[in-house]
Write a protein that binds this DNA or RNA. Sequence first.
DNA 1: GTCTATATTAAGATAGAC
DNA 2: GTCTATCTTAATATAGAC
Lengths: 204, 204
Amino acid sequence: MKPQRKTRIQQKNSQAILDAALEVFSRHGYRGSTLDQIANEAGLSKPNLIYYFPSKEVIHVTLLSDMLETWLAPLHSLDPAGDPIEEILGYVRQKLEMSRSRPRESRLFANEVLQGAPRIMEAIKGELRDLVDEKTAVIQSWIDEGKIAPLDPKHLLFSIWATTQHYADFDVQVSAVLGSGGNDHFPEAEAFLVDFYRRALTPA
Amino acid sequence: MKPQRKTRIQQKNSQAILDAALEVFSRHGYRGSTLDQIANEAGLSKPNLIYYFPSKEVIHVTLLSDMLETWLAPLHSLDPAGDPIEEILGYVRQKLEMSRSRPRESRLFANEVLQGAPRIMEAIKGELRDLVDEKTAVIQSWIDEGKIAPLDPKHLLFSIWATTQHYADFDVQVSAVLGSGGNDHFPEAEAFLVDFYRRALTPA
DNA sequence: GTCTATATTAAGATAGAC
DNA sequence: GTCTATCTTAATATAGAC
């Protein structure tokens, strides 16, 4: 047998570690998380965990890098040739869907930015900022053509990030305020946000 | 001299500790913060800090309790007898002003909720939820009278919390994306949010 | 009221047997 | 590849001198 880059068991364990680390880091932040918790969650011993990743920091950076592409994908897909209002509403829907399907990634990112983004500032000032510049230019052109209301495009994006990620990052507060047990609040959140943004964006 | 409840020096040191703790907890979360950091920031020795507060947890809970009243004040002041749109826009302005003047409190709260709100869930399910129920009933009555657009009142509040607190909690990302050095982005944030909510809330 | 010194626990990481 | 045992450092907290 030729040597493989990773055996099946290594693939499985690496994945289990990253999944466990996402669970722990997303709730407790970097410094609030321990290798013991991660190893426990992954069903591995602490030294075995260190066999796969050389340090706590490497696990954290791996998670952040892995998620970045996924995180930016919805904004990438904003189509300059599409219908302006529907494009933006589609972006809102996709971002909310990310909060629904990947709440841990959202909280991981929120924790990192709250703490001053020490491990991800480079990407924020690079990739993210470039993409925002590109897409806000598109939104500005829609405004100039009178196709959507004249609202500052960058602050419009901030509002979309804030309102959609809120349902992942502040989930315990949302559930506590809405009551009604373990209900899924995303359908009514989507109905609200789509209606809300359509009203705000439709030109007078 | 009669004994005082607290000498002047005790008042000063207690305050210095709480201020330092707010600085540290708001950036690193509960478990990510250390008494060393707090003592250092307060200009006191670690044992001296423990002389004033019996434990790390007590300091944290004190901060959370102290801020809660301040935090809910803007929503308390929403006046059922006022002009509906102006009342809600006033609430948006007050919440944004809180993000500007008290970003550390905002981040402290965000950290706590992100981590599942272990130390504040009681207040969220009690005081906060009761107040939200009271004020969303007011907003619903405005909707029923056709004075504002028919948008789910609770999700409307979530959106206001999310968009205004975003400028405190994600400040490093906002600054990185907007660029332009150490500029104060709050004036343009206020202009955006007021315009945005006025459009969304004005009945068709 | 404040300090130095230290007890105690837990965290990140390593050594070496199997 | 995985484990037990352990090293090292740092964290919360306490004891006791001043």
